[in-house]
């Protein structure tokens, strides 16, 4: 394989992995606070359509990403109100949010499907961004650098700050956190809002980073992959990074080997399609073999918190 092709593959892998990584990081924080939001796919679609419409009307990708984050956050507030304030079942509400987001995005996107937009391109000078070698570092959309910074930021927040400790405490033992005076509901609202904003940005990555168009259901199930990755990564940001890139790598290498021939192209399409799931099972088995406290799920994950005086 030539160096040129290797660089091209890396660039495609990074593109395929980025939206999954962003959405999964958001969900990781939500779950660390003890909330299971299965609405990621729906929030991503709301983010995707919002990002597309703003990009189409203003031509400003930064504004598009911001709008997508706000739209994702607002949609997550529906979930937060129902599950945190009204103590509705989180699994059912999350699924409902996905269905709602799919429908709402389709409705909002009507009339936008035959319109092309421009991509959110690298902000580095063209000599670097399109250089045959240096593009592997400088050639990406700002969303890619954002996702990588966020991996570090989420890790730092959760494990190195007092606020992160409080958030984790809320996820591990909500009653104790409540009894020493923390607002469990308030903290969970904040976590869900962050998850919603990240899902919105992840959705916007579809029209801005991967394929500059709006198509209904264009996230095609990647929100679910993001939810699964959080478990895969055992709620750890750097494992999440590895998991998202492993996923992107498998999906991309499949296409390159099919299109270019070589030894990998002899692997049947069905086996390629199964590979991420095989990887998930293997990783889950490995994790369960060496059980330590920090690798398991937040203890209060998915349980409603009913404050008592």
């Amino acid at each position: 394989m030539s160096a040129e092709l290797l660089i091209a593959i890396i660039i495609t892998v990074v593109g395929a992995s980025t939206p999954i990584l962003i959405a999964a990081l958001g969900e990781l924080v939500v779950e660390k606070a003890g909330v299971l939001n299965l609405g990621v796919e729906g929030m991503m679609l709301i983010g995707a359509v919002t990002g597309f419409i703003v990009m189409f009307t203003t031509g400003n990708p930064w504004l598009a990403v911001l709008a997508a984050a706000i739209a994702g956050m607002l949609s997550s507030m529906i979930f937060a109100f129902l599950t945190l304030s009204l103590s509705a079942n989180q699994t059912a509400t999350g699924l409902a949010l996905t269905i709602f987001g799919t429908g709402l995005s389709a409705l909002a996107g009507q009339g936008y499907s035959a319109r092309p937009v421009d991509l959110f391109r690298s902000v580095f000078p063209a000599e670097l961004a399109t250089h045959p070698v240096w593009r592997v570092i400088f050639g990406y959309s700002p969303l890619v650098y954002f996702s990588l910074i966020m991996v570090f930021a989420v890790w730092w927040f959760l494990h190195k700050t007092r606020s992160g400790l409080i958030l984790r405490a809320v996820g591990e033992n909500d009653l104790s956190a409540h009894s020493i005076g923390y607002s469990v509901i308030g903290i969970r609202y904040a976590a869900v809002a962050f998850g919603g904003a990240m899902a919105g940005i992840a959705g916007a990555a579809f029209p801005l980073l991967l394929t500059p168009q709006w198509a209904e259901r264009m996230t095609a199930g990647r929100g679910w992959i993001a939810v699964a990755l959080v478990v895969f990564a055992s709620w750890r940001p750097f494992r999440l990074l590895a998991g998202a890139y492993l996923f992107g790598l498998v999906m991309t290498v499949e296409l390159y080997s099919k299109a270019g021939g070589g030894i990998l192209s002899t692997i049947p399409a069905e086996l390629w399609a199964a590979m991420p799931y095989i990887a998930t099972v293997v990783v889950l088995v490995l994790i369960s073999l060496r059980r330590t406290g920090s690798t398991s799920a937040p203890a209060c994950l998915g349980k409603p918190f009913l404050a008592t005086n």
Binding site: A16, L210, T211, Q213, M218, A220, M251, L255, A259, G260
Partner: peptide
């Protein structure tokens, strides 16, 4: 799955 179509085209 437009994103996947695009990646196939890139490949």
């Amino acid at each position: 799955d437009p994103a996947r179509e695009a990646d196939a085209a890139r490949a």
